[in-house]
């Protein structure tokens, strides 16, 4: 039987194309235009060519912010992924306790970003905050507003508190989808708990873990609100990540040209990483389908 060719689907896709054009493509084109020009009074533009790109790529400011950003993403992935798996493994499998755990674990995810920043800002304060007060009473000289290490530790703790739940919930869903036949076979073989995890659970979690790594990496790479509310990028520039630096440049200094060039480079890095993750995910899906 000959297959009917129907092009009407293109018309159905048109609203999405228009929406993406207005929300993404046109603003992106504007950013590209701005990145090659200098602006005065906000609306007088002068062509400067590649000057902003050259200036930014040779400035320590961009590389320092990128370094801090990569380090932050690396640290939180290193903590959140194993911790999320561990929590998922420890959660009850069924019954009312499982439902209660799910609700409690999902709670941090429901809190808006700026509220999380505010909670931790108060929580960590050495004069009135519970965490700050306890640490000082224990003999630590903790002050996230003045000490770079304390600021980093607090920002990381805040992100771990906010987002480990996501990894835990994804891992839990992955664990629940493993057929019980695998566990029965492991029991017959008298496999240890570690072997069950290493040879059954971890391989079966591969798909959801890649999604978790992708989501957490992208989100941490674009983090802005929480550290901005908590530390404002300080002390000094200690917690000035890429997006904080970008906003300082675009809104604080109103340097639209350099900020546009910065945005485009930031976007390209995110696009590259997303593409790599996407490709890996697709190839894993194909491998699993073949199996």
């Amino acid at each position: 039987m000959e297959k009917t060719v129907n092009q009407r689907a293109w018309i159905l896709v048109l609203p999405v194309v228009l929406l993406v054009a207005f929300s993404s493509v046109i603003p992106m084109m504007t950013v590209v235009n701005y990145s090659f020009q200098d602006s005065f009074r906000g609306n007088d533009f002068f062509w400067v060519g590649l000057e902003w790109y050259s200036e930014l790529l040779r400035s320590e400011r961009l590389w320092d912010a990128l370094g801090r950003q990569l380090l932050f993403s690396f640290i939180i992935l290193l903590i959140e992924i194993p911790l999320g798996i561990l929590i998922a493994l420890s959660m009850p499998k069924k019954g009312w306790l499982a439902s209660l755990c799910l609700v409690l674990i999902a709670l941090p995810l429901l809190i808006p970003y700026n509220v999380v920043g505010t909670i931790w800002q108060i929580f960590g304060r050495s004069d009135i905050g519970l965490l700050g007060r306890v640490l000082i009473d224990l003999g630590f000289s903790y002050n996230y507003a003045q000490n770079a290490f304390d600021a980093w530790a607090t920002v990381i703790a805040m992100d771990v508190w906010h987002w480990t739940s996501l990894v835990a919930l994804l891992s839990y869903a992955g664990l629940r989808s493993i057929p019980s036949a695998y566990y029965q076979a492991a029991k017959i073989d008298q496999a240890s708990r570690w072997s069950v995890f290493r040879y059954i659970e971890l391989p079966k979690l591969r798909g959801v873990l890649i999604i978790a790594v992708l989501l957490r990496f992208m989100d941490s790479f674009m983090i802005y609100t929480e550290p901005f509310v908590l530390t404002g990028g300080g002390p000094g520039n200690a917690t000035t990540f890429l997006s904080i630096d970008l906003v300082k440049m675009a809104l604080g200094q109103f340097d639209l040209g350099p900020a546009a060039a910065f945005s485009l480079m930031y976007f390209l890095v995110i696009l590259l990483i997303s593409y790599v993750f996407y490709t890996v995910m697709i190839s894993i899906d194909k491998d699993e389908t073949k199996q």
């Binding site: 504007t30 235009n33 090659f36 020009q37 609306n43 062509w47």
Partner: peptide, 15 residues
């Protein structure tokens, strides 16, 4: 379109 600050080189690039 003035707010988009178009220039010939960028217009040619997108074209």
């Amino acid at each position: 379109m003035e707010w988009m600050a178009w220039t010939w080189p960028t217009a040619l690039f997108f074209a």
